[in-house]
Simulated assay, not measured.
Amino acid sequence: MPTMESTPVDKSQRLYNFSAGPAALPEDVLLEAREELPVYDHVGASVMEISHRSAAYDEIEAGARAHIRALLDLDDDWHILFLQGGASMQFYQVPLNFLPEDGVADYVITGRWGTKAIKEAKRVGTAHVAASSEDDNFSHIPAQETWDLHPDAAYVHITTNETVNGNQYGFDPQLDVPVVTDASSEFLSRPMNLDSYGLIYAGAQKNIGPAGVTIVLVHDDFLQRRKQPLPTMLDYGTHAERRFNTPPVFPIYMVEKVGRWLLDQGGLDAIAALNERKAQKLYDRLDRNDFYRGTVDEGARSRMNVTFRLHDADLEPVFIKEASAEGLMSLKGHRSVGGMRASIYNAMPEDGVDALVAFMDEFERTHG
């Protein structure tokens, strides 16, 4: 990694990519995919060219499911679906399947994506805000005991990590009603207590693969509660039963490789420990003095998306420009909130965080 005194960074080389998504992938996985790209496993064609009904593809999809099942210790009651449309499609598909016409669903709103999710639910039926942290710019996660839950709710929807706002649940809710979660930006970054979950969905492009596939885990007990009739492609049962249509073959191929990579790292306990260590280094730097300022309460800070501001807002574009010149990519915060955001997902190496902290030290020395 170049220093601030070095020549301009060589952008033909891999740099430290702090993008919120599509995000960094493990370099080992990319190199393996590169080797296999022209001809996959002696089948005479690229993985992007083979039939989705072929034995070679069957093996890929089965492997991807097996890795996810092993990482999360899923029993056979969990269906693992590979869908399309991103989390944004799930915002509508969940209530379409599980919100009865005369029923209600509870939503806990902790940021931009939860806000979008409840908007889509209201197109289907009655969605109730059980709790929200909007009044303090989503800087905290409402404690579970404060949630105003409807006694007859069909499900409770949460967003376990808010990519834009930089907050993350420190717990898996334990409720008597099924919990549905958008886990897009933390999926497979930590172990989960699945006891209360009915459905978990995640766009792959943060921690587990490239954009183009959405992973949905749905427990069979919850699946059986879905409404009927439903549009064929938006019915979770369609996809739980069989491979109905052409799946996004290449993204699933990459999910299989990243899942195997995670297992090789020691599984979710090991990757969670690494993620905690990376995040702590960065938050320790933010807390050192008031030159930098985190935007989220300490107890709700995301280990995936670290959001922060400078004491002088005029310095923020300078920070982003100089960081980019040093090979630290995509540190600009989301357009809706501004500031900076360092996304440090599973594939971000610890030395990338070290390089960012060193840059922050030098930037404060020269601009403080």
Rank of each mutant, 00 (worst) to 15 (best):
A154D: 12
E145M: 08
F18G: 12
H52E: 13
F98W: 04
E61R: 03
W261I: 03
F250S: 03
L234W: 00
E276V: 07
P317K: 11
G114Q: 01
G338P: 11
Y236Q: 02
N97P: 15
S54G: 00
A202Y: 00
Q144V: 15
Q228G: 07
G368A: 08
P151N: 12
D102Y: 06
I141W: 09
Y283A: 12
A131W: 09
H334Y: 09
G209M: 05
N346D: 11
Y253H: 14
L74W: 03
V177F: 05
L72G: 10
G338D: 07
E120S: 14
E35F: 10
I118L: 01
L71V: 13
R365D: 15
A56W: 02
A153Q: 12
S54L: 01
R69E: 06
M340D: 07
H79V: 07
I252C: 08
Y253V: 09
F363K: 02
T246K: 13
V180R: 01
L194I: 10
L81Q: 04
A87E: 08
D312C: 10
W113R: 04
P8T: 08
K332Q: 15
A33I: 15
D361F: 07
A23Q: 11
M254L: 15
P229V: 01
N346A: 09
Q174R: 06
D235G: 03
M348I: 10
R242D: 12
V255C: 07
T214Q: 03
I344R: 00
D221N: 14
W113A: 08
A24H: 06
L268G: 05
E322G: 06
D10I: 13
Y155M: 11
I215N: 00
S196F: 02
P95A: 04
G209V: 03
Q13F: 11
D290L: 13
G44V: 07
A121H: 00
L81Y: 05
L268N: 03
H157E: 13
A127N: 02
Q168S: 02
L274C: 08
P248M: 07
S336V: 08
L194F: 08
A66F: 05
H239G: 01
D221Y: 07
P8M: 10
Q144R: 13
G212Y: 05
V357K: 03
L217K: 00
A183H: 04
F171Y: 08
V179L: 08
E316P: 04
D176W: 04
D76M: 09
E316D: 13
V43C: 15
P229D: 01
G125Y: 01
G294T: 06
D297Q: 15
N165C: 14
A183T: 05
L356Y: 05
T246A: 14
P178S: 06
F244S: 08
E322V: 12
E59Q: 14
N305W: 07
I200H: 00
G352C: 02
E186Q: 14
D176Y: 05
S51W: 06
D176P: 09
L199F: 09
S189W: 03
L194R: 03
A270P: 13
V156Q: 10
E350F: 08
A358K: 13
E364F: 04
T110P: 01
A202Q: 02
V9A: 15
A56C: 05
Q90R: 12
Y236D: 01
E186L: 14
A300N: 11
L234Y: 00
T126A: 13
A153Y: 05
E145N: 14
F363A: 03
M192K: 11
E326Q: 08
H128K: 10
T181D: 02
R225I: 05
L31G: 07
G85T: 14
